[in-house]
């Protein structure tokens, strides 16, 4: 056992275990693949005849592709894998018959999901930004910072929501995909007021407000002082539900 593994297990046993599980499983490969997809748009921008400035084009890719699809799906894959795999193969027994609080198990799983997803998405976003911006990178750094912060907020919120979903329903992956498509992409856009319960709307708002460019706008965008607390509330509620569920569920 290496010193690093020993230290990580001693500090964060459940997180370390989950990260090792991810590194030996298929889910992380899917997430890496999804996270690299925006690079294609970067390549199209470089070879195509597109009039948009690099920062506006990058903002479009981030809002439509990253926040609209990749971020929720990538987070969903790892968040559902974190608990569901262990519940299904019954290795959860090794975690829950310990004098460790259920909250800590949820929190450490959350940390592992967030770390893995954010790393993969950030790499994809930064690579895309580098390709699109080319030599004008110094002039477009603000849009990258906005994308990085908003991605972090989105991963933080979706991880908590999907971890709770994975503990509450058996087919969490399907439910999560339906939630992303129906609630986040359709209902929150077309039914007034639904956006107040949409993670995506807050993530989009954070991005648009941080970037603060007249060429990139969003209907009903929320102020930063409202968006961050809203995301924190979603995380808190999801944590509460997940912990409660883990405390009361049967492991057969």
């Amino acid at each position: 056992m290496s010193n690093m593994t020993r230290s990580l297990i001693a500090l964060l046993p459940v997180s370390t275990l989950t990260l090792l599980q991810f590194s030996s499983g298929k889910a992380i490969r899917f997430v890496a693949f999804f996270s690299a997809l925006p690079i294609l748009f970067g390549a199209i921008y470089r070879v195509g005849d597109i009039d948009d400035s690099p920062d506006v084009f990058f903002a479009g890719v981030v809002l439509s592709t990253v926040f609209g699809t990749l971020l929720p799906i990538a987070t969903l894959i790892l968040a559902t894998s974190a608990f569901r795999d262990e519940i299904d193969d019954r290795t959860m027994v090794y975690l829950v018959i310990k004098p460790v609080s259920r909250f800590r198990i949820v929190a450490e799983k959350y940390l592992a999901v967030t770390e893995s997803t954010i790393l993969a998405l950030w790499l994809g976003v930064i690579a895309t930004w580098i390709i699109i911006s080319g030599t004008s990178m110094p002039d477009t750094i603000e849009v990258l910072v906005a994308a990085i912060v908003a991605t972090l907020a989105g991963v933080a919120a979706y991880s908590a929501v999907f971890i709770a979903v994975s503990l509450l329903v058996p087919r969490a992956l399907i439910v999560g995909i339906l939630y992303t498509i129906i609630w986040e992409s359709l209902l929150s856009r077309f039914i007034p007021g639904v956006w107040t319960l949409s993670v995506r709307h807050y993530v989009d708002s954070i991005f648009v407000r941080l970037y603060n460019d007249p060429g990139v706008t969003l209907d009903n965008s929320v102020q930063l002082y409202a968006a961050f607390p809203a995301i924190l509330i979603m995380i808190g509620l999801s944590f509460g539900l997940a912990t409660l569920r883990l405390r009361t569920m049967d492991f057969e």
Binding site: L20, S24, D89, R90, V93, Y94
Partner: peptide, 12 residues
């Protein structure tokens, strides 16, 4: 507890 199921953590 020594559980019955065989699944463990193969990467450990």
């Amino acid at each position: 507890l020594v559980p019955e199921q065989e699944h463990m953590y193969p990467f450990l």
